[in-house]
Design a protein around this nucleic acid. Structure first.
Lengths: 245, 245
DNA sequence: CCGGCGTTATTGTCTAGACAAAAGACTAGG
DNA sequence: CCTAGTCTTTTGTCTAGACAATAACGCCGG
């Protein structure tokens, strides 16, 4: 019977989407851990003063995308992030490594704030000269480098990221927790390791790498651009698709 | 007012899913081309003897996945396949190449039917000894090899594929048109070119390649396994994701 | 011929209620 | 203590209807 104080409708758009967002936001931000119970349809009905169909539509849509799991009588629970979701969503390498049983470590290679160059502007989709933060990190499993992360952060969208040291928490994780995003784009390609990438990942120059570039936005405002490069074999993206469900 | 004779409910599962399948099947099989109009909600209501909410739920779900586009007053139309859908769906390389303006060509490298070896069985998820067809093809754009396709087909699921010569129509396309699938799985990885792949794609041995493996099923029955290998740069998989919609 | 305006088809959303199905919780009997 | 049956909660599905928003269509006057 303890309702959650931190969910509220924002009055923007159809009711079922407002309810959807109200519940999706704390899940995607990590505030609600996997397994946490979500109020029942009746509770949400009373809470938001809407009919049950409307609540059901929002929850069914979240369940369809794998954000929550629903069971009769038990209720609705935050789902564990799956490999399937990972293709389009989080791609939190530290969680991935920890799940595999290896010891995760992260090294901050560089960190520099300043106005966006033309190249930065192109990649982050901001005007030239906008304040940006450059980051480079290396993620390792059991001491072996498994992913190089090059990141640009739009400081207008996330000014408080400057207070972070990134010695324990990765910038991707911090952003996920502190800047809710509304849209993301992924581009997946194979690439040969440049000399710099080869050096940092301790692989031969020209070796095959999987390269994922991700951009996220909050509404019209770009938040971050990340290029995640992994040696061939270290990373496999798996997805499942059903036309009839 | 001309209703479509080829859509019917199959009596399996909830009504809204039956309706969904009845409409998704001809779209995914290519029988309904992009732009084709789908009967209005009122027509489908009368056709299937269900309430409008049930029809709406099915169509809204199809629209949410980008299979159809809906506009007030104009009605519901089969959507054009987008790059977004391509990540999880079709990956029809010939259409992709043609859209880029290049000349598409295909070479059949090998073709062999026989009982499944242990390795075939593992890859296609069928019992050892089940009848399978091995295929190898090379797809080229403007004469340059851009994708190597190695494919296993479960002949129990698609016996009539033996009548095909694959001189003009690719096996992936043929299967899509003739064997409706209900489930698909993708695995995306980077890999270094083996000597055989290097020879066939005319790239150096060890060069970076993007490797997509796809399996499809019809219900519990595996249909096909395909390994699609492209040189780095020839293929980029793009996806977009919105948590709030 | 053409611009403006009302008509109408179509989808978008929401409500209130009903019944079904699954499964945890509880209780009585052994 | 265990088991079988019953109660209750929660989700799953469906109906019938209502009103709103949008945009194509057609008509009519200039």
């Amino acid at each position: 019977m303890t309702l959650d104080v931190d969910i509220a409708l924002d009055g923007d758009g159809p009711l079922h989407q407002q309810i959807r967002r109200a519940i999706a936001r704390p899940i995607l931000a990590g505030a609600w851990p996997p397994g946490r119970r979500i109020p029942s349809e009746h509770e949400l009905m009373a809470r938001f003063k809407v009919s049950r169909m409307t609540v059901n539509r929002a929850l069914a849509s979240l369940a369809g995308e794998g954000l929550v799991e629903r069971r009769r009588k038990s209720g609705t629970m935050v789902a564990a992030p799956s490999a399937e979701r990972a293709v389009f969503e989080i791609w939190d390498i530290s969680a991935e490594i920890a799940r595999g049983g290896a010891v995760y470590a992260m090294t901050l290679l560089s960190r520099e704030a300043g106005p966006a160059t033309a190249e930065d502007a192109e990649r982050l989709r901001v005007p030239v000269g906008a304040p940006v933060l450059h980051l480079a990190l290396c993620h390792a499993a059991d001491g072996v480098p498994v992913q190089l992360e090059e990141r640009l952060v739009n400081l207008s969208a996330a000014p408080r990221i400057l207070d972070q040291s990134f010695e324990t928490v990765a910038p991707g994780r911090w952003l996920l927790d502190h800047v809710p995003w509304t849209e993301a784009e992924h581009a997946i390609r194979a690439a040969a390791a440049s000399s710099e990438i080869a050096r940092r990942l301790k692989i031969p120059r020209g070796a095959a790498c999987l390269c994922v570039e991700r951009r996220t936005w909050r509404g019209p405002e770009p938040i971050t651009f990340a290029r995640l490069t992994s040696p061939a074999g270290a990373q496999v993206l798996v997805g499942r698709f059903r036309p009839g469900s």
